[in-house]
């Protein structure tokens, strides 16, 4: 079971800040495909993966990163701190 978190407009498009996801996905990219297939709001949020960033257990990673051993996945747009 994965904790999946959404921030900024990704959170707004999907409509919830976090959820638990039961998945067999081996990589982030596979998880994204599973989520996109769920409902239109997920498809809209993940329409352009190049506009998104992903963190695994609070570390920035690439979409081809493996999910083995990961507990928390977060999707968000490029950051705008400072």
């Amino acid at each position: 079971m994965l904790d999946v978190l959404y921030f900024a407009w990704v959170r707004e498009r999907i409509g919830i800040p976090r959820e638990q996801v039961e998945t067999q996905a081996a990589t982030v990219a596979e998880l994204v495909e599973e989520l996109k297939a769920r409902e239109e709001r997920y498809a809209a949020a993940f329409a352009d993966p190049s506009a998104l960033r992903v963190a695994l257990d609070q570390e920035l990673r690439d979409f081809d990163a493996p999910l083995a051993g990961v507990r928390e996945v977060a999707f968000f747009p490029p950051m705008t701190g400072g």
Binding site: F7, A74, P77, P78, M79, T80, G81, G82
Partner: peptide, 26 residues
């Protein structure tokens, strides 16, 4: 520090104006 905080610290800014609200794009 400023360069990295801007693009690598997980903050997202949203501007609220009289015309509506919008996320600041990186």
């Amino acid at each position: 520090l400023m360069d990295y905080l801007k693009s690598r610290a997980p903050f997202w800014k949203k501007e609220i104006t009289a015309r509506g609200a919008g996320w600041v794009a990186a």
